[in-house]
Each structure stands twice: as C-alpha cells, then as structure tokens.
C-alpha cells in the first residue's frame, strides 16, 4: 500500500514539475487566475489576451490557471507565489478574500484582483470603469428604443455586473424617464442555451435592446437577437468586455470593450518597482482603457444627432466634467 502511494506521489510531483518547468527564481514572472474557461471570447479571454500581451511586450515569463472552485483560489495564489512569481492576477471580484489571506505570507509577490477594493501592502485591484461606456449605451438604447423597454442579461447578480447594469439604466433614464428595464440572470456564465431562452423571453415581453454581461453564455443572447431580427423584429444587442461586434455583425449595434493594455500597464508598474498598493481606476480617460466600439456595419442606424450627443457626453467624461454613475463595491 505504502509503495503504491509513493509511486503516485512521485508521479504527481513529476507532473507538477512538467507544468512549471525549471524556472529561474530571480526573473520577473506573471501569473493569472481566471474564474472560467479562457475560450469565452469575453471576460476571461480578455485577461488571457492581456497576459499574452504582457509576455510579448514586457518579455517576461507568464503562466495561467483556471481557478473555478473557491477552494482552489488560495491554493493557486500560494502555488504561484511560492514559485517566485512577482505578480499574480486574480481575474475577478471573487478573488479578493483569497488574496487578502495569502498576501502576508508572500511579501515579495504582488496580488492584483480585477475589480474589488481590497488594498494591502502587496494587494491592489484594477477597476475597469466599464460603467462609463454602459452609460453611453444606455443613452443610445433609451433614445432609440421604440417599445420603451430595455433588457439586461447577466451571469449572476454580483456587484461588478450590477454596476454596469445600473449605469446603463441611468443612461437610458436620462433621455427617457419612463423606460422599463428587465433584468434576467442565467445563474452561471456558461449556459448559452439558457441565455438564449432568457433573451427570447425578454423579446416577447417587448424589449428591443439587450445588453448582456454573461461571458460565454452571452452568445445565446446574440443568437436570440439575430433570430428575432430575421423574423422581422427590430431588435439590437450590445456586446460586453471585448469588442464582440464580429460575433453577430447583423445584430450587435456596439460593444462596451476593455483594452487588454490595462494588464500590461499594471504588470509594468510592478516590474519597474513603481507599484503602489491602491485601487487602480481604469476608465476612458486613462488612454481609452475602456471604450465604446460601434459596429461599422450598423453604425448608420444610429441617428446623427444621437451620435453627436453621445460624443458630447464622452468628451465630458474625458474632461472630468461628468462622472458616470456606479454602484459602490
């Protein structure tokens, strides 16, 4: 029995050795934990593309692991920190507690969570101000909606998602105070079929603009909107986190996109020793880290004066004259 276990343990050790390789501990290395599969063409893909950019632009060694179960979060943080990684990203609001628990044991490693507000000596967070863009989307939808109903579809009702929804709602209400908002949640981030059904339900309810913030599941929303457009209904969707306009070019009017350079920026700060523990706000004014990307194929559906109005608000945000509403978290 003992002998058998011994073989299994050594195999396990060996497999760990293979995945990590024999890395030089003195070199700066960056790791990434994502809450879901990076092939979602959305939130998780964004982080992985950011990591690849770090590798290319800063010439450092990078590593990635999917860290889905809460029980894995601390373990994965510890794993990378103990391997001498200088920076570990936890890609999501949910990683804050784990970062806080692990950080004191590894003073030489910086832990950055994307979204969140936990700050310690070596813990910081990046907050994408996607609300600035979803507010603009709200203005567009609120003005263009013929039914006066807008749909929102999220993976789960967690603060970062909720906040983008809130900003969109405020944007829509700024132009049409009577607008009705339907918000539905899938319950996870993967169930494309369920997201499609939720979108179809909203469409039968009379919704004619749908914004999703549901990662991979969001594709179901695009499909529902595409099918309904084919059936003659005048409905549009908005993309989130990445420029998703290409996924359904006949249905997506615009996307609220985050630029992957945010990750390079943060990694560069840590590598050059300029890192300060703080919440790093990344909005439009920071070199357009978040931006509104119109779908060139459908841009002409938006009236000229509305485009001008949106541009005006955008300039106001850039100039600091206007602050998009966000939910504190």
């Amino acid at each position: 029995m003992f002998k058998k276990n011994w073989i299994i343990y050594s195999l396990l050790l060996l497999s760990f050795g293979f995945t990590i390789g024999t890395a030089d501990a003195a070199k700066f290395k960056v790791a990434l934990l994502t809450p879901g599969s990076i092939s979602d063409a959305g939130w998780n893909a964004l982080a992985y593309e950011g990591l690849q950019r770090i590798e290319k632009e800063l010439g450092v060694e990078v590593s990635h692991v999917e860290s889905k179960a809460p029980s894995q979060w601390e373990e994965h943080f510890r794993f990378y920190a103990s391997k001498g990684y200088g920076l570990v990203f936890g890609h999501g609001f949910e990683y804050q507690e784990a970062a806080k628990a692990v950080a004191p044991d590894f003073p030489d490693t910086v832990f950055i969570t994307t979204s969140g507000n936990t700050v310690l000596d070596n813990v910081a967070s990046i907050v994408f101000e996607l609300e600035e863009v979803t507010y603009l989307l709200g203005v567009i939808a609120g003005t263009m909606s013929q039914t006066g109903k807008i749909g929102l579809i999220g993976g789960m009702n967690i603060p970062p998602i909720n906040s983008t929804f809130h900003a969109l709602e405020e944007g829509a209400k700024s132009v049409n105070p009577n607008i009705k908002i339907s918000s539905s949640y899938v319950g996870d981030w993967e169930n494309i079929g369920k997201a499609k059904e939720l979108a179809l339900s909203q469409i039968t309810e009379g919704v004619d603009f749908i914004f999703h913030n549901a990662d991979a599941a969001g594709r179901g929303v695009f499909h529902a909107v595409e099918e309904s457009r084919k059936a003659g209904k005048n409905i549009y969707a908005f993309g989130s986190n990445l420029d998703q306009n290409d996924i359904a070019p006949d249905a997506i009017l615009a996307s609220a996109a985050i630029d992957t350079k945010a990750f390079v920026y943060a990694a560069d700060l840590v590598q050059t020793g300029k890192f300060e523990p703080q919440v790093m706000w990344m909005g439009m004014s920071l070199n357009e880290t978040v931006k509104l990307v119109y779908n060139p194929k459908l841009k002409d559906r938006i009236p000229e004066d509305l485009l001008a109005k949106v541009e005006k608000i955008r300039q106001d945000i850039l100039a600091g004259k206007f602050k998009a509403p966000r939910v504190k978290f």
């Binding site: 749909g151 009702n157 009705k180 908002i181 339907s182 539905s184 369920k194 939720l198 339900s201």
Partner: peptide, 23 residues
C-alpha cells in the same frame, strides 16, 4: 419549470423578486 421562470424574469415589474428565486 425552466421556461416559466425565464418568462417571469423578463417582466420588469417583477424585478423586485430576487432572481435566485426563479432559478
């Protein structure tokens, strides 16, 4: 049991009910 709550979630006036209830 899936289709009915989906449809109910879409009704704006029922927005006060937590979505977990429907799920």
């Amino acid at each position: 049991a899936n289709a009915l709550p989906d449809r109910l979630q879409a009704i704006a006036d029922l927005g006060f009910i937590p979505y977990q209830f429907f799920l």
